[in-house]
Design a protein around this nucleic acid. Structure first.
Lengths: 155, 155
DNA sequence: CCTTAGCTGATAATGACTATCACAAAATAC
DNA sequence: GTATTTTGTGATAGTCATTATCAGCTAAGG
């Protein structure tokens, strides 16, 4: 687990630099985020996962930790159409986000690594005189599994 | 107000076709949406505007009406990062949404009429085997007014 | 050791939204 | 044309994610 270890170190360093203490609760929350970095967990889900690591963490502490991590841009807080906040590791500290593919059938969220929006951003900045800092792009549709299933059902 | 009148007619027609009654509450809600079509109102804001038209409408009725209008694709329900649903007239019944420019300073939401994502969607469908039905794209940044103000403050 | 600041957990409060329920209005049955 | 079912409404209670509060804990410095 070399990669997780180094990411963990970097995050702890960032917390320390910003003057926050490295409490066990915060370490465990970061640990869960690193272990589930492919998922897009809600605060509640993170809370349950941390609690399952035999610690009695409070829900409020999870929310506070996520707030700090968001401020430090270690994670991104994302809100899809259901209005529930989900959190997403932002390892490579890029200015720009990856995009998301939200399946309308199973609700799964997949990531798109490429950005592909530079040209469009340039157009926006020129045509609308709007200074772009970031963006959120989500495609709604059917994931591989669900679209296959749909075909066989319909056929 | 020719344009509003014809839009109004079309919407009433759609409601009728779908088997919904044209109650005064529903008409007034549509009226408000048409009058404020540039804005992106929350349910609460729509409620207050309808109430100010001297009717004692209930908040629940507004929510119910917005739900119906969303089902019929007359309006779009959008959730930005604050988690509050906002509603947006979808006059031209295009498959695809316009995009949004959310100002991080004043909170204003501007619209981008062009779509510009066809090429990217094709890439997504090919590379991720994901059937795209719709998308949501929001740019976060500074609107014209706020970026000008920022410059003079910093200069 | 004592004080202070930073953290935590339990829980109350908030705020957007949804469900419920009794009543009204309209459509349909008889 | 009245009875009955359906649809819609307003008030309000309930839900659920999130935030604020507050007493107690913990670590650090004097």
């Amino acid at each position: 687990m070399k990669k997780l270890d180094s990411s963990f170190k970097i995050i702890k360093q960032k917390l320390h630099e910003a003057g926050f203490k490295l409490t066990p609760q915060r370490e465990l929350t970061v640990e869960v985020l690193l272990e589930k970095e492919k998922d897009h967990l809600s605060a509640e889900e993170i809370y349950l996962l941390v609690k399952s690591k035999n610690t009695g963490i409070g829900l409020a502490t999870v929310y506070r930790t996520l707030e700090i991590l968001t401020e430090l841009q270690i994670i991104n807080k994302l809100t899809f159409q259901d209005g529930i906040a989900r959190y997403d590791l932002n390892m490579n500290s890029e200015k720009h986000q990856h995009h998301h593919l939200l399946c309308l059938k199973c609700g799964n969220i997949e990531e798109v690594k490429q950005d592909m929006l530079f040209e469009i951003e340039k157009e926006i900045e020129r045509d609308y005189q709007f200074v772009v800092r970031d963006h959120r792009l989500t495609f709604h549709g059917l994931c591989r599994n669900c679209s296959n299933r749909q075909e066989t059902e319909e056929g």
